[in-house]
Simulated assay, not measured.
Amino acid sequence: MDLPVSPPVQPMLAKSVKGIPDPAKHGGLSFEPKWDGFRCLVFKDGDEVELASRNTKPLTRYFPEVVAAMREQLPERCVLDGEIFVALSTSGAPRLEFEVLQERIHPAASRIEMLSEKTPASYVAFDLLALGDESYAERPFAERRAALEQALAGLTGPCFLTRTTTDPAEAEEWFHQFEGAGLDGVVAKPLGEPYRPNARAMLKIKHERTADVVLAGFREHKTSTPERPLLGSMLLGLYADGELQHIGVSASFTEKRRAELWEELQPLVVDIADHPWGRWQEFLTANPDRVPGTQSRWSQGKDLSFTPLRPERVVEVAYDHMEGRRFRHTAQFRRWRTDRDPESCGYEQLEEPVSYDLTKILNVDKGGL
């Protein structure tokens, strides 16, 4: 493989901001949807195609159907930045399914082949690092985008070109509408900036909501010792049909606060047999139902044991969005809610985004996904 930009390359990153930024304060901005998939840099030289993850690890073997499509649909020689995603039409309009995408990373070649047919992935490109014999990495984004549009014109899937706009009002609409298709927010790129690997040179605007959830247990921090025990993460739950369901974790605390929380929560410690999740003890080495404290291939080697607590405390947390019935990312602790009864904390309080058709975002018909 002989390209003007060669692997390994760390992708350009984004820093979080509140609300759609003013383009005038950044020398002009280009807005685009924030995809919820695996960040992926593509290196293509003829029939040679390599896919690299955000941390430069190879992804090529896991997505043979995407590699085949890239050989057919992408320019002969190019380096692209984009995202691999899986979209399913489980409830009408297609939407992104991150948990299904995670299942595509598997050591068995037979399972990779089966999943490539059962849950095929797609690729959406949003930046250009090289085309032919020319590197575009040092050029401003406005030039990179123009060349990318020309090079990828007419794509109808499974390779796509992301939409962009320079209108902040339209970006605001996207921020609210596109979540219904499983997207993660909006990204803003300065029009005059070069491609800056591993630098937070972009801006991301993500959804943030709050929920009152039940504290059901905690895990100790990896630096915890018998002399100085520290809380690592809180295990959170919500009630559904009278049963406490695991919804996610909250984990961002200072060391001082970790020590305080560990001490504060000791009176609530209970034997697992007396805990609502006690019936899941038999699954401590497998994870058929995504229950807390159990293993999956994403957590192999990690200690997922937890200290069960009487589910008497309610905590308000901030979260961005849901993945099925779980928080997609780690929730942020906001405050204790001593005024709330734990049994009153259910899923009905969570905001449901209005459904939105992913094919409208990609400007293709449903056959393209």
Rank of each mutant, 00 (worst) to 15 (best):
R61V: 04
R39K: 11
K44D: 00
E50G: 11
T60M: 06
T60W: 02
F63T: 03
D36N: 14
R61S: 15
D47F: 02
F38G: 11
R61F: 06
V49N: 01
L59D: 12
P64T: 05
D47C: 04
L51H: 07
F43Y: 09
L41I: 14
D36Y: 11
F63H: 11
T60H: 06
G37W: 07
L59E: 11
L59Y: 15
P58G: 10
V42N: 09
L51Q: 07
E48G: 05
V66C: 03
L41E: 11
R61K: 15
E48D: 14
T56A: 14
W35S: 04
A52Q: 12
K44M: 01
L59Q: 15
C40A: 15
P33N: 10
E50V: 05
Y62D: 04
F63Q: 08
K34L: 14
R54Y: 07
K34V: 10
T56S: 13
F63A: 09
R61G: 07
V66S: 05
D47A: 13
G46R: 00
G37V: 04
V66A: 09
E48N: 13
F43H: 04
T60G: 09
R39Q: 11
T56I: 08
Y62P: 02
D45Y: 02
E65D: 13
L41M: 14
D36R: 08
R54C: 08
S53L: 07
G46I: 00
V49G: 00
F43W: 01
S53P: 06
N55Q: 13
T56H: 04
G37A: 07
K34I: 12
T56V: 13
P33M: 08
E50W: 01
C40G: 15
L41H: 11
E65G: 14
L51P: 09
E48M: 05
T56N: 12
V67Y: 00
V66L: 03
P64H: 04
F43K: 03
D45T: 00
D45R: 00
A52T: 01
L41R: 07
